[in-house]
Amino acid sequence: MIPLACEHLVGHSEDPTIFKKPQLVPIQDLKLLVRDYPPIAKNALTILVNISHDAEVLENLASDDTFIEILLKKITDPKETAADEVAMLLSNLAKSDQMEKLITLKRASPAKDVSTSEYALDQLFDCFVKGADGGLNKNANFDYLAYLLADMSKHEAGRQHFLSKREYDGVVPISKLMVFTEHKSHIRRRGVASTIKNVAFETQKHPLLLADDTDIIDGSPGVNMLPYILLPLAGSEEYSEEESANMLPDLQLLPPDKARESDNEIVLTHLETLLLLSTTREGRDKMRSAGVYPLIRETHLRVDNDEVREACDRLVQLIMGDEEETPRIEEVVDDDGKIEEIF
Rank of each mutant, 00 (worst) to 15 (best):
1 M>P: 07
5 A>V: 13
11 G>A: 09
11 G>L: 11
15 D>M: 09
17 T>V: 08
20 K>N: 05
22 P>G: 00
25 V>I: 12
28 Q>V: 12
31 K>D: 03
33 L>F: 12
35 R>G: 10
37 Y>Q: 12
41 A>D: 05
43 N>Y: 07
43 N>F: 05
46 T>R: 14
50 N>L: 11
55 A>E: 15
58 L>S: 05
58 L>F: 02
62 A>W: 08
65 D>A: 12
67 F>W: 06
68 I>V: 15
68 I>Q: 00
69 E>V: 04
71 L>T: 00
71 L>P: 02
72 L>T: 06
72 L>P: 07
74 K>R: 14
75 I>Y: 00
77 D>E: 11
77 D>Y: 04
82 A>D: 10
83 A>F: 06
84 D>K: 02
88 M>G: 09
88 M>F: 06
90 L>Q: 02
90 L>H: 03
91 S>K: 02
93 L>E: 00
94 A>L: 05
96 S>Y: 11
101 K>G: 01
101 K>A: 08
103 I>A: 03
109 S>K: 10
110 P>F: 03
112 K>D: 14
114 V>G: 02
115 S>I: 00
116 T>M: 03
120 A>K: 08
124 L>N: 04
125 F>I: 12
128 F>W: 11
132 A>L: 01
135 G>K: 01
137 N>E: 09
138 K>Q: 12
139 N>G: 09
139 N>D: 14
140 A>Y: 13
141 N>D: 14
143 D>L: 03
152 M>P: 02
154 K>T: 06
159 R>T: 01
159 R>L: 00
164 S>F: 01
164 S>P: 05
174 I>P: 10
182 E>M: 12
183 H>Q: 07
183 H>G: 07
184 K>Y: 10
186 H>Q: 15
187 I>E: 13
189 R>I: 06
192 V>T: 13
194 S>L: 10
206 H>L: 07
210 L>G: 08
216 I>A: 09
216 I>W: 05
217 I>A: 09
221 P>R: 04
221 P>G: 04
221 P>D: 10
223 V>S: 10
223 V>A: 13
224 N>H: 15
224 N>F: 11
227 P>V: 08
229 I>G: 05
231 L>E: 03
232 P>S: 02
239 Y>H: 08
241 E>L: 14
242 E>L: 13
242 E>T: 15
243 E>H: 09
244 S>V: 02
246 N>L: 14
249 P>R: 02
252 Q>G: 10
252 Q>F: 05
252 Q>P: 11
254 L>V: 00
255 P>I: 03
257 D>R: 06
263 D>Y: 07
268 L>A: 12
274 L>C: 11
274 L>A: 04
276 L>P: 01
282 E>A: 13
282 E>Y: 06
285 D>C: 05
289 S>E: 15
290 A>I: 00
291 G>I: 11
292 V>N: 11
295 L>W: 01
297 R>Y: 13
297 R>P: 00
301 L>Y: 09
303 V>C: 07
303 V>Y: 01
304 D>T: 14
305 N>C: 14
307 E>F: 09
308 V>K: 00
310 E>P: 00
310 E>Q: 10
314 R>I: 08
321 G>E: 01
323 E>D: 14
331 E>N: 06
333 V>R: 14
333 V>A: 15
335 D>W: 07
337 G>N: 06
339 I>C: 03
